[in-house]
């Protein structure tokens, strides 16, 4: 009996691994609206369609939009310091994509709003020797980088809104990077610096073993062809 229970549950786990992505998507679609209306917040702890909040430092970084500004420097024609209002005054762009963590959790159809990273780079003017872009966070530890070609994609944005609201602290507010075609660790939170460089400098998790080119596999059902 004990053995049957163990084997049955392990089998259930294995089936869950194979079908879990689809089951989760189904639950997210059917129960997502219910959960959004749950005032207690208990259902927000159920394991589907939810963000996991990761910080690599000991505390949650905090900076209000008024205090926030971002340096754009390195191999650029005109180094800039952009304020929150500067960013808001630029042409906005919206996109709705899945957020996929490399470890597996996924949130479907997250709506983002911000400005294209390419527009920010163009505003500073990228110098001829430039090959890559490096990002820093005001958490003081996290860094990321993209090749210049990756950074110029239309689905790579400097985001200030998520799901129709200003980005919360936990989600990297007031301003974060959102690299739609790549795993979540590329989408640096609490962005405060963009540096154009002559080579790719591996980011925080990449120094700890993750791939530098973090494309989400096509098995994810996404089509992230460059536009």
């Amino acid at each position: 009996m004990g053995r049957r229970v163990v084997l049955g549950l392990v089998g259930l786990g294995a089936i869950g691994v194979v079908t879990g992505a689809r089951v989760q998507d189904f639950l997210e679609r059917t129960l997502g609206p219910v959960i959004a209306k749950d005032g207690t917040g208990v259902t927000a702890l159920l394991p589907f369609g939810r963000f996991r909040i990761y910080t690599v430092t000991g505390s949650l970084p905090s900076r209000s939009p008024d205090e926030w500004s971002m340096r754009v420097g390195g191999l650029v024609d005109t180094p800039l310091r952009l304020t929150y209002d500067d960013l808001r005054a630029m042409e906005p762009t919206s996109l709705t994509r899945d957020f996929q963590c490399v470890t597996g959790w996924r949130v479907s159809d997250v709506a983002w709003r911000g400005v294209r990273l390419a527009d920010v780079l163009d505003r500073a003017g990228v110098a001829g020797a430039a090959r890559a872009v490096r990002f820093t966070s005001f958490d003081g530890a996290y860094t990321e980088s993209l090749t210049l070609a990756q950074a110029r994609r239309r689905d790579v944005i400097v985001a200030y809104e998520m799901e129709g609201s200003p980005l919360s602290r936990a989600h990297g507010g007031p301003v974060r990077l959102y690299v739609a075609p790549m795993y979540g660790y590329k989408s640096l939170k609490w962005l405060d610096g963009i540096e154009v460089t002559d080579r790719v400098v591996p980011g925080y998790w990449e120094q700890r073993g993750y791939d530098i080119d973090a494309w989400v596999g096509r098995s994810n059902g996404r089509d992230d062809e460059a536009t």
Partner: peptide, 28 residues
């Protein structure tokens, strides 16, 4: 214990599995 160890290994060494399998592993 068996299931958590197995799915945990999938999450810790993600390069060996497809995205959908990892999503399933996290879910389980």
């Amino acid at each position: 214990g068996v299931v958590l160890l197995g799915t945990g290994v999938m999450m810790r060494w993600p390069g060996l599995w497809s995205v959908d399998l990892r999503t399933g592993a996290t879910f389980v």
